[in-house]
Design a protein around this nucleic acid. Structure first.
Lengths: 225, 225
DNA sequence: AAAGTTCAGGGCGAATTCAGGCGCTGCGTC
DNA sequence: GACGCAGCGCCTGAATTCGCCCTGAACTTT
C-alpha cells in the first residue's frame, strides 16, 4: 500500500512517515501544500494523510483538487485541537476521517487501516476469501485453519491483490504501490513474489487463488466473504 | 507495561508512581487535568490511574476525551471516601474499576494487575502458555514445573509479549512500553533481552516460544491456556 | 556483584537478480 | 481451416546480494 503524507511540521512529518513505513507502507511525503498538490495528482496512492493548516496551497484546497482530478482514495485529515471546526469543512470537502493532534502511533495506523478496509469495501480487520483469512493488523494469514508464513513483501502483494479482489492488477501497479522509489525497474520481482505466494498459499493447487491474465497482470479470483 | 498516573496531590502522586515503578512499570505522571489530558493522548500506555477530583480538566472529562480519542486501555479511578457517588459516574463514563482513598500499595497493584489481565483477555492471576506459568504478581516464571530466574527487564519483555500473545510486536513498541523516556534510541537492547529470554526460557530449544518476524518484530507463538 | 547497555563481527533469511525453458498468441503458409 | 513458426511473456529454480538479527563479550550503571 502506498501512502501520501502532506504535513509542514518536519518532525511530525518525519514521525508519520516512520510509522507508516514501519507498518509496511510505501510512503511519499510533502512539506507544503504546493508540492503536496503536485504529488497528489502525479503519484499513485491508496490513502493520503493531509494536515489542514498548511503553508502554500491549503489542505482543503488539496482535497478539492484531488477529488476534482478523480482520485478516489480515502483522505485522513489532521487538525490542531483548536481548529476542530475546520474538520467539518474538511469532511464536507471530501475527506473521509479526521484525527486531532496530538495523536498516537497506534491511533493513526488504526484509522488508516480502517479507511483502507472501507475503501476496499470491508468493515472488519479480518478479510476472508475462500479458505483464507487475512489479518491486516496482525499480519497473519490462515489457510484452511492452518497458519501460513509469509515474508513481509509476500504479505504486501497478497494484501494488495485481496483489497482489489476480482480486478486485474498489472505488475507495474503492484510495483508502484509496494515501493516508494518510482523508478520502473527492469526486473521480475513481482513474478517471483507471485510464484512464492502461490506455492505458499496453495501448495497442492486446489484453489489457484491468483490467475494471471497474460499481458495485463494478475487477479485474485476467489469471492470474498 | 506503561502506566499513566493523573493525581493532583504531590505526595500521593509521588507514592503511586513509586509503587508502580518498583513493580516494574514505566510510568508517566501528571499533576493536573490539563497536562493529564495531554499525556493521555500523547503517550502510549497500557493502563491509566486517574483521580476524579482534579484541578483543570476534571477526571471525568479526561476519561471522556480518552475514550473519544479511541484509547482502549483500562482506567482505574481514585475517589475520596466522601465522594464515592462520583465513582458511579466514572464507571458510566468509561472507567473500568475504582479505588477509594486511602488505599494500600498492595491493593492498588492488585487492581491494576487485574485490569491488565482482563484487558489482555485473562481472568486469572497466573498466566499459562505451553509449559510456562507466569505469575505477574509474584513476578515468577515456571517452565515445566521448574522455576526460571529472570531479571526485571527480562520479565517485562516476557510479560508484554505474553499479554499480546499471537500478535507481532515491533521492537519500537516494546521500547515504548518498557521505558519511560520516549526517545528512540539507536540500540539493540531489545534484541539482547530477547536472546536472554530465549536462552533462559528454553535452553534446549524445545519450544521456541518467541519467533522473530524479520523486519517486523517478535511474536509469542504458544497458545495460552 | 548483578543488571543493563553498548559494541563489533558474522550468519542467515529475505529480497533481488539471472538464465533457461515453456506456453500462449498472432501471423504466414499451405 | 490446419499447421508451423517465431516472438514475447511468464514461470521457475538457483545464484547472488543485502541487511537485519543474533551472539559473545566488554563496558557502564546501580
Amino acid at each position: 500500500m502506498r501512502a501520501l503524507v502532506i504535513e509542514d511540521d518536519p518532525d511530525l512529518r518525519q514521525q508519520v512517515v516512520q510509522f507508516l513505513s514501519a507498518d509496511g507502507f510505501a510512503v511519499d511525503s510533502a512539506g507544503d501544500g504546493t508540492q503536496g498538490a503536485y504529488m497528489a495528482e502525479e503519484y499513485p496512492a491508496d490513502v493520503a494523510i493531509v494536515d489542514l493548516g498548511l503553508p502554500g496551497t491549503s489542505g482543503l484546497e488539496i482535497i478539492r483538487q484531488l477529488r476534482k482530478a478523480g482520485r478516489k482514495y480515502p483522505v485522513l485529515i489532521l487538525t490542531a485541537r483548536d481548529g476542530w471546526q475546520s474538520k467539518v469543512e474538511g469532511l464536507e470537502t471530501g475527506a473521509d476521517d479526521y484525527l486531532v493532534k496530538p495523536f498516537q502511533k497506534e491511533e493513526l495506523l488504526a484509522r488508516v487501516r480502517a479507511l483502507l478496509r472501507r475503501s476496499g469495501g470491508w468493515a472488519q480487520a479480518q478479510l476472508a476469501s475462500g479458505p483464507y483469512v487475512v489479518d491486516t493488523g496482525a499480519k497473519t494469514v490462515v489457510a484452511d485453519g492452518k497458519p501460513v508464513e509469509l515474508t513481509s513483501y509476500e504479505f504486501r502483494v497478497l494484501e494488495y491483490l485481496l483489497t482489489h479482489a476480482g480486478k486485474v492488477i498489472s505488475k507495474s501497479e503492484l510495483t508502484e504501490h509496494l515501493y516508494t522509489e518510482d523508478e520502473e525497474r527492469d526486473s521480475n520481482v513481482i513474478e517471483v513474489f507471485i510464484r512464492r505466494l502461490r506455492s505458499k498459499l496453495d501448495p497442492e493447487s486446489h484453489y489457484n487463488p491468483i490467475t494471471t491474465i497474460r499481458g495485463a497482470g494478475y487477479r485474485w479470483d476467489l469471492p470474498r466473504a
